[in-house]
Design a protein around this nucleic acid. Structure first.
Lengths: 225, 225
DNA sequence: GCAAAAGTGTTGACTATACACCCATGT
DNA sequence: ACATGGGTGTATAGTCAACACTTTTGC
């Protein structure tokens, strides 16, 4: 590792104390008409994002992915790095590093719905419990990430189990974008994008016409611009 | 720091050796018709991104910003975090953390053009010298970041000194997007966006009609969607 | 007067939006 | 028969892309 141009201004790399390193995950999902996030109780009645210390021999991405899998019991969630905070630690000359990730997962497992694993629970993003201060900004970042990207890249597949109805998918878009969408225009846009295809099957649930079921044609996140 | 749900699966935080931490910066600029990046010679004839170890008491963002300022001699460059790579170090159970940043800076200082500070030099992003492998991907990430965001948020201000002509600004967009733009449509779009305003002054340079000079109405990066 | 870059509008294609009714089912 | 959510088309406004000539200067 070259440390370039460090001799000027008297930088002294060796003076840095070993950083503490933590991986935090913002796991988001859509339940009914709510965007929800998985939180765990922490000190002083506050809640926190699930976090973990990376194991020896695994990358940060692996740490995040395995934690998401453990907490959601869902194998192919969408997991992406958000940001790294690296502030001087309060005490002494240490450094606290927090690497945050966003993950998107369908709200329900195929069978039933474990409301969370261990002490984690789903909370509405609109009215979350008091959070550890650091995690407020991380949650905000995750939300901005999602709002910004969902319309431009078909991230929605990761928030819905296959197969789904177009109304379910529309709800996902409405919840994330926090606005109502026109049903006809939404369907026109979606079908012309070629990202979904009908399975040919129907779902009957309730006193109304059954809904056609669809699936995504690809599971790779693809930009739509 | 709470380490949540770590007791399952026998995670042992204490087993992690102290990570090595480095901040790398991809400093991009536009010179003539080229997108250029600041590189420094490294081992084995390879080149590397400028990198530095954060000083005690400063945040990662501060580390990146001060390095950019030192290398470009430009005070208000655009600097944003790109990604953090955290791989198990080759030897033993350590961990190598690289936090990368992208920075955008005007190619020339008002007076002249220091081609780089210390052993750094500008290289074309199209045909760069052989790079340290890790930095290939970082450079690619930086480029994708810029290509994706430049059209949607007026980042271009950070690549041009004030004041500028509309032709100069058009070249910036063309270089970043790697395609020719129509002059009339570009001007229509730009002027209707309200992001630039004429200064009223002209610049005469060469055997042709003088160009009007413009400035940005704001220096805060603002989305255009 | 000529070379070289600056500056300027119109048209057609496409995209996005607004909007209201019938359909299939369960009760 | 009625309540419930599923499903469908058209007309308009706005946005985006293509395109060519005149202006002002230095030499």
């Amino acid at each position: 590792m070259e440390t370039v141009a460090d001799t000027e201004e008297g930088r002294s790399p060796a003076a840095s104390a070993p950083p503490e390193l933590v991986v935090e995950v913002v796991i988001l999902s859509v339940r009914g008409a709510d965007l929800v996030v998985l939180l765990t109780p922490a000190h002083d009645g506050l809640h926190a994002l699930p976090q973990t210390v990376p194991r020896v021999g695994e990358t940060l991405d692996q740490t995040a992915a395995s934690q998401v899998q453990r907490l959601t019991r869902h194998a192919d969630a969408y997991v992406r790095q958000l940001y790294t905070w690296g502030e001087p630690a309060g005490s002494g000359n240490g450094r606290a590093l927090q690497v945050s990730y966003i993950a998107l997962s369908p709200a329900e497992d195929p069978e039933g719905q474990p409301a969370g694993v261990g002490d984690c629970r789903w909370w509405s993003v609109e009215k979350p419990p008091p959070l550890v201060p650091r995690h407020e900004r991380t949650l905000r970042q995750a939300r901005e990430y999602l709002e910004e990207r969902l319309p431009h890249t078909h991230l929605a597949w990761s928030l819905l189990p296959d197969p789904f109805t177009l109304s379910e998918l529309q709800v996902v878009y409405e919840v994330v974008q926090r606005r109502a969408l026109d049903k006809r225009n939404f369907r026109k846009w979606l079908l012309s994008s070629g990202l979904v295809e009908p399975t040919g099957r129907l779902r009957c649930e309730g006193a109304h016409r059954p809904a056609r079921l669809y699936r995504f044609t690809t599971r790779e996140p693809r930009p739509l611009d």
